[in-house]
Simulated scan of single mutants.
Amino acid sequence: MAASSGQHTKEEGIIAAPAGYSAIPIKFSKKSRSHHFLYVKEHRVREELDPTRPQDRTLFILNVPPYCTKKCLSELFSRHCAIESVELQEKPGPAQKAEITRAQSKFFSQKTVPGFRVAYVVFKSQEGAQAIKSLKPREPLVISTKTRCIKTGIAKWIHDYSTTLIDPGELQTEVDAFMQEHDKRIAEEEAKAEEEEGVPDEEGWVKVTRKGRRPGIPRTEAANLRALEREKKRRARKELLNFYAWQHRESKREHIAQLRKKFEEDKQKITLMRAQRKFRPY
């Protein structure tokens, strides 16, 4: 049964690899008995879409193990040609945008992605990319050596734990530096906005901001009272009438009281008209 293109097999000295890729065997250390492969091919994306990765000097690498860092890849491939940059990503895609003016944060940097990753290696010359692409080592390349030791086991756990401990002084220093840079950038933007205010752009439009508006006139006491009265009326309109039983009883009592009051007023009017002899019931 024929082996698939992605299997790690050897037939007649040829290592099977996906179409368009070259296979480079690697292993963790000299004592390791098992190894796996890095699949390498030339990066082919238009430079205007990915300007940081030139076509003729960039290699795209698949199947990068979790313990293989940027430094490891740089030292492995720098034997053939000087390397300009190495990028590790979770999946293929454009270069991650980073702020060049600001130094990378020690405490707020992005977390490393666990598991196998992809890499983009940019060489300083075309010869380096071609040499790695056609590389066919007899023995697997070793990742961890005496000069390039990768921590494992207890040593790795201790190192990972120590990196989680934060020094308050260093953290405060970084936060203060960030806030100073932020305040400086805001001040520059405000100064630029003031310079551009009132100046027409290329199409003749003038930018209007709230800074030039007249301050509001404070309201008088009478105006405040009128506003309170309007608010009371608005709340009274929203209030539910005769919704509860006690509201229904109160409305009946008020209606009866108004009828009695009107009856007494009518009696007084009749008495007054009789006294004036102007009452003619028939």
Rank of each mutant, 00 (worst) to 15 (best):
R79I: 15
G115W: 09
M273Q: 12
L49G: 01
E12H: 12
D183E: 15
Q96T: 15
A155Q: 09
L165H: 15
R235D: 00
K238R: 06
S85G: 06
C81H: 08
K136R: 14
R260T: 01
L225V: 07
L228N: 06
E170G: 10
L76M: 15
E239M: 00
F116M: 06
E190A: 15
L141G: 00
Q89V: 02
K30M: 00
L228Q: 13
A103G: 13
E195P: 05
I132G: 03
R148T: 04
Y21I: 04
T58F: 08
K184W: 02
L171A: 15
A193M: 13
V118K: 10
K262L: 04
E84K: 12
Q7C: 12
L259S: 07
R44V: 14
T52E: 10
P66E: 14
G93E: 05
S5V: 13
G20F: 07
I217D: 09
A3S: 09
C68G: 00
G153N: 11
S144H: 07
A236S: 00
K136V: 06
V45P: 06
F37W: 05
K10S: 14
E188F: 09
A119G: 11
Y67I: 02
R219V: 07
I217E: 10
R226V: 04
E265C: 00
R237Y: 00
T145V: 02
I15N: 05
K267C: 08
Q172V: 13
T101F: 14
K31V: 02
C149M: 06
T52K: 12
K71C: 07
Q276T: 02
P200R: 11
K97P: 13
I26D: 00
H248G: 00
G93A: 03
D167F: 01
S34W: 13
K278E: 04
P140Q: 08
S105E: 08
R53A: 08
K111V: 09
F108I: 01
R210F: 03
E75I: 15
A2S: 10
G20P: 08
F107M: 04
T112H: 06
A103V: 10
P18D: 13
P281I: 03
Y39D: 01
V199H: 03
K151P: 02
V142H: 04
K207Y: 09
I256F: 00
K30L: 01
S162M: 15
Y244W: 05
M273H: 08
A23L: 01
G115Q: 08
A129V: 11
R53V: 06
V208R: 01
T145P: 01
Q172F: 11
I14W: 11
L62N: 05
E195M: 12
E202Y: 07
K124N: 09
D50N: 03
R234W: 02
G115K: 06
E48Q: 12
F116E: 10
L73E: 09
F123N: 03
K91C: 03
Q55E: 14
L225K: 11
K207A: 13
N242M: 02
K184C: 10
K146W: 03
L259T: 03
E87C: 05
D56Q: 12
T271Q: 07
F116Q: 07
A23Y: 03
F279C: 14
T271S: 10
L62G: 01
T173D: 09
Q276F: 01
L88Y: 03
R274G: 04
K133T: 14
